[in-house]
Nucleic acid binder design. Sequence first.
DNA 1: CTTGACCTTCCAGTTACTGGAAACCCTAGG
DNA 2: CCTAGGGTTTCCAGTAACTGGAAGGTCAAG
Lengths: 136, 136
Amino acid sequence: MNIGEAAARSGLPPKTIRYYEEIGLVNPARDTNGYRAFRESDVHKLSFLERARALGFTIGDCRALLSLWEDDSRASADVKAIAREHLAEIDAKISSLRQMRKTLDDLIGKCAGDDRPECPIIERFAHGAEPVTETR
Amino acid sequence: MNIGEAAARSGLPPKTIRYYEEIGLVNPARDTNGYRAFRESDVHKLSFLERARALGFTIGDCRALLSLWEDDSRASADVKAIAREHLAEIDAKISSLRQMRKTLDDLIGKCAGDDRPECPIIERFAHGAEPVTETR
DNA sequence: CTTGACCTTCCAGTTACTGGAAACCCTAGG
DNA sequence: CCTAGGGTTTCCAGTAACTGGAAGGTCAAG
C-alpha cells in the first residue's frame, strides 16, 4: 500500500511517516517506481507509534517501547519503568502549569480590562511580586 | 554594566540576553571595546521578560506586552486579552496532560512490572483501546 | 494526451534557547 | 612587561518533532 493509505490507517500524516522513516523508526519496502510499499506490519508499527505519541512519549521513548514490543523476552518491568518516568514528567508539567494558571488567573481577576492604562498584569511583570502562595 | 551583571540582576543567562538582543527585544548600547553596556532600563526590561516568560507567555506575547508596557495610553483590556488567551492555552494543555495522565496511570496500575513479557501498556499501543472515559 | 491526484526528494522554518569554538579585552600578580 | 584568569565577543550548530513548500516523477481516468 502507498503512503496515503498507510497514513489514513495509522492516523499519522504522510509527512510524519516519511520523517519516521528518516529517523529509522520504520523501514517500508519500495516499489519499482520508488513509492514506499507499506506492509500490514508497517502500518501496525505506525499505529503503535501514533498511540504512544498521543500519550506524550518522546520519540526516544517510542524507540525503546518499540524494541520492547518486538522483544518476546522483554520484562514488563522495563516497560513500566519507562511509563513511570514519563508519568513523573507529566506530573511535573501539570504542576508547573497549574502554578502558572493560578498566578495568571489571579492577575486577570484584578485587571479592570477597560480603556485605562492601569493594569496589575503589566505591573507584575514590571515590578515582580511575592508568590501568590502567601496565604496569610 | 556588562552582560554578566545584567544576567545576575535579571535572572536570565547571558546567552538568553544575547538572543533577546538578536531578535530585537532589547537593544543595549555598546562600549568602545564592543562590550554591551546595559542601562538600568535595559535590566528592567530583561526582568520584565524573565517574569513574563516564567508565566509561560511566548516571545510573541512578550513583544506585545512590552510594547503595551511602554505605551502610556494603553488600554488594560488589551493586556487582559493577551492574558486571557494565554490562560486558555494553559487550560488546554493542562486538560490534555490530565487525560494522558489518567490513561497512563491506569495502564501502569495494570502492569505487573515483573520479569514476564505480558504488559497491558505495550498491548495498548499495539492494539489500541477505547477511551478510559467509558464509565459504565 | 491531458488533467489531477499521488508520490518522490530536498530545503527551510518553527520555538526558544543552549553549547562550543576561536578570538578579543581587562585586570591583578610577579 | 608578561602572563594567567575570567569575562566578553561573534558565529555555527544542535535541540524536538515535525510542517510547509518547491520542483518534478507516476498513474489512472476520460
